[in-house]
Design a binder for these strands. Structure first.
Lengths: 207, 207
DNA sequence: AAATATTTTAATCAAATGATTAAATCTGTG
DNA sequence: CACAGATTTAATCATTTGATTAAAATATTT
């Protein structure tokens, strides 16, 4: 006991959070039982309530962290006035594919929770609205020059997300149907870092 | 009582299935309680077990029907030798967007259940494998002529699904962030019937 | 070491949930 | 009508599940 207070390698509270993050992100709120979390964390069930008060409060924490991770890295890139549209496309694509390769379940989690609506997602709406505003502010001029209308902004956001995020949502299908293993899938995603910006530009200029 | 045996407008069994389809498709297996289904169907809880034996058996039925609907309509189009690649793209896109506009929760359900794996999805794997084989058989020659490699088939499938299916998976986000209502969203999807084939061709021929 | 605060455990509770049962009601048939 | 079979209901069971409690164990401070 030379050290001050490093009891376990990781504090119990952190172990619970890690277990909860893993399970909630994989399976969603309803499918995860508090006992699953306790077992995954290797702790007594009562500790979950001791540290986090309730399953729902614990979930809220994980949800906020996940959403933050999902949108956070967009801000600095979109906010960098020195980047051209091409550079933005390339950077956002690369940065996102890297992050999602590390957290492949994140998009599905987000979609799942947005769908279960509930009222608690107001803060998400706000956060996404910020990103969207930044995106529009940053891209709208360029788009207007290319004669792409405002309503088509919706299409562009869908295309952007569809080409980058969808593969991770569909990863289980892709792996099963195409008999990819994780490494092969990741290699495909690595290729997409270069391809998606090219494709997006091709889409934007297609008659 | 002139008629033979038409008791209710819809048989109790069918009412239960409709309620189950709605709820399971919207929220997934774990989040739906048998009492929710009973209430939605306007029937006594015991009837669910009387007709379908268990929640899981009922879910299996819904799952199979949903998967069938998801892949069914592809077969006749892909199998029609008289169609050009362009025509296939156009028809599949149109047919799919129509179907998904009627059943917007279907893609999410499929992704969700593929992810929860379980072993019971072998039949799905087989079904998807058939569609994939038909797709490859139908498209591979054309792709080879365009110097698109076999590994890029994976990208093409992702792009195809990403541009068509993803918007429906992300519909809740799109509607919240962009403040679309259902009609506006559907109008966008209607536009995509023409746009997605153009975009896909642009992608395929992009340097 | 004693006192105090923090962390962990085992046992238990109350509500939710999937399922069953026995009786009641309805339906068509002889 | 009365009977048999199918359908529906109300009541109840057993398990799961989220949460609590009181006590034990551990760490921290004095």
């Amino acid at each position: 006991m030379a050290k001050q207070k490093l009891k376990a390698d990781v504090s119990t509270e952190e172990k619970i959070k890690q277990a909860a993050r893993k399970l909630f992100t994989e399976k969603g709120f309803a499918a995860v039982k508090t006992r699953d979390i306790a077992e995954e964390a290797g702790i007594n069930l009562a500790l979950l309530n001791y540290y986090f008060r309730s399953k729902e409060k614990l979930f809220d924490i994980i949800m906020i962290e996940n959403f933050d991770q999902f949108v956070q890295q967009l801000i600095p890139i979109l906010g960098d006035e020195s980047l051209s549209l091409d550079e933005i496309l390339t950077q956002v694509t690369g940065s996102y594919i890297d992050m999602l390769t590390q957290n492949p379940d994140l998009p599905f989690f987000i979609m799942n929770e947005m769908r279960s609506d509930s009222t608690k997602l107001q803060f998400v709406k706000d956060k996404m609205a910020n990103v969207r505003a930044a995106f529009i502010k940053r891209v709208e001029d360029t788009l207007l020059k290319k004669k792409i209308s405002r309503t088509n902004m919706g299409h562009m956001m869908m295309n952007f997300m569809g080409l980058i995020i969808f593969p991770f949502v569909a990863q289980p299908i892709m792996m099963k149907v195409n008999k990819f293993n994780k490494n092969e899938f990741d290699a495909l995603m690595e290729e997409r870092k270069k391809l998606v910006p090219i494709w997006l530009k091709a889409i934007m200029t297609a008659q």
